[in-house]
Structures are given as C-alpha cells and as structure tokens.
Amino acid sequence: MHNIIKIENFNFIRSNNKFFNLKINHLEINKNEKWALLGHNGSGKTTLLNSLFGFENYQGLINIFGVDPRKHLKKILPFTSYVAQNPDDGLFCSTIKEDILFACKNFNLLNEKTTETTIINQLLQKIPKLELLLDRPPYELSFGEKKIALLATALAINPSLLIMDEPFSMLDQKQKNNLIEIIQKFEGTLIMATHDPVAIKEICTHSLILSNGLVAYQGNLDETKHTI
C-alpha cells in the first residue's frame, strides 16, 4: 500500500469553542515520508493528531493503512506508535523496561524469535544510554530522560507509522540533538507536530502548515525551507 494516511473533507468544530474550525480538503501521506505538522499554538495540530486515532468527533474521512480509525482502531495500533507531548501521559508502568515491553505484550509481538531481550537489545542499539533508564521507575526520571524513555516505548513495536506531538518541547539543545539523531534513524512514516526549525530541517521531507483553521501549505519541504 502506497498511501499510509489519506484525509478527505476533514472538518472539525470544537464543542466548547464554535469559532475553532479545522478544515483539510485533501491530504495524502505516503510510505516512509517524514511530515512536519506546523502552525501556531492552538492551530489544531494536536487535534489533528488525536483525530488520526479517531479520538475526536470530526466529519469527513480519515484512512490509516486503508482503515477508518473510528471503526477499526485495533487494526492499525500494532503498526502505529504515538509519542505524547507530556511524557507522563505515556509512562505508566513500574519501570521503563516494563513500559517498553507493555505494547509488545498487548499486541502479542513476543515469540521464540522476538524475545524481550531481542527487543531491548535492538532499542539499545538505536538509543544511546537507554540501559541507564531501563530499571528505573518513571517518576524518578528527569523530563529529558522521560522523553527519551517515551520514544523508546514507541519504537519498541517497530512501528510503520510514528506520530509525535511536540517531541522537542522543553528540552535543552543537547537533548534535542540526541532525540533528532534517534528519530533520523527511524525508517517508517513520521508525522511530527513541532516548532523546532532545526529538527524540521534535519528530519522532515514534507510539511503541513495550519493557519486559521485551514491548510496554508502542504507538500515538499524544500519549497518552504527558506521560510522556516
């Protein structure tokens, strides 16, 4: 399948704010493309990301892997990972290791070939210094460590589609660079809501710019690079 995400006539009106209306007429995101979702605060980036999982009440059509997430969310979840803006929302187990293996167990990804050790070892190769976090409880970690740990939990299932909401917010430059390096190694399709111009230039190939509830630009990043 070439299209990973297809959006047609998307229309969302916030129930508690009738003035907020987000519209996307047509959007196609293809395999292995890296999309930056850009826009001012409150422009609807998180709303759009939530809609991709069918969590918002919208009109129109969203298809992920050819499936409507509102009807068949369970079918797309084993191939899709989400990195929340606030890492505390996504780290709920006793230790980071348990958090990493949480989705793998739920999606029955563990078998004789793919054991807990192989998953952890694969992640250790992708994420530097992850071994220092594995046995620690989430509430003991710093904010930057939590962000790295949350990304590890997302990459554990080896997703085809990775959706990230402001992954670089509240990080210092060193931690941002670490995170950029890790995300650069990701080979699947990526959608990332962010305000970080360095990260966009280093990681993304396409951009979707939201402004006043409409799509101001969608397409190849090269054409907008000079404006970022």
Binding site: N50, F53, F55, L73, K74, L77, P78, T80, S81, Y82, A84, N86, D88, D89, G90, F92, F102, A103, N106, F107, T153
Partner: peptide, 15 residues
C-alpha cells in the same frame, strides 16, 4: 484531562 490522556495512551498501546 490527565486521566483522559492516560486512557488514550493505554488504548493506543493495546491495553
């Protein structure tokens, strides 16, 4: 709100 976001995170990861 946190409970709602936690619920969504759990759902996304197959709980």
């Amino acid at each position: 709100f946190r409970a709602q976001r936690l619920y969504r995170s759990l759902k996304i990861r197959g709980y």
